[in-house]
Amino acid sequence: MSLIAVVDYGMGNLRSVSKALEHVAMADQKVIVTSDPADIAAADHIVFPGQGAARDCMLELRQRRLIEPVLKAAREKPFFGICMGLQVLLAHSQENKGIECMGLYDGEVRFFGNAFAEQGINQKEAMLKIPHMGWNRVHQTQAHPLWQGIAQDSRFYFVHSYYVSPVDQGLAAGETEFGIKFVSAIARDNVFAAQFHPEKSAADGLQLLENFTRWNGSQN
């Protein structure tokens, strides 16, 4: 029996994520929702979701002593970050007046409003509502086993006010436009992480999760 562990650190409901994974998992794969480092160490695939504010996420991860186990998993085995589970992989977030995050990747999590202001985009006139909520296109910027069976520029469901801006733009696996162009998915080695919610993105989202459950963490 192979194990898919959904990391629970008290930030948001994980039922949808686990149900979607169960829907696509192979017969010999078991999906568990866990906050036990031993489970994370034992699992074959790790799903790292999350919603809510960066400060609370980091606080919960710290209190539950999950930072090291999660970082270790992200260096070793097929790892899928979703929404906040992508954002906290970066070094720093602008949310809550500035929060240090896990720092797996160099870069910052930025507020859309700041980016619009810097680029002279009139948010009100452009009717750019924050949170960025709804179905937007993801342009695949690199070939990846997880994109298999998903058409270029397919739509996924987003709901977020902050976006990742990695220093190494080569991390990008997908880009999306919302007033500005931002990185909506990253991929490096055994890690894939998405700003959107595959568990809420109908057939294409399920395809992405299905590809993940079959992924060995390599690029081919």
Partner: peptide, 8 residues
């Protein structure tokens, strides 16, 4: 803009 208008 590429964010779709939603039907609910």
């Amino acid at each position: 803009m590429s964010l779709a208008k939603r039907i609910i």
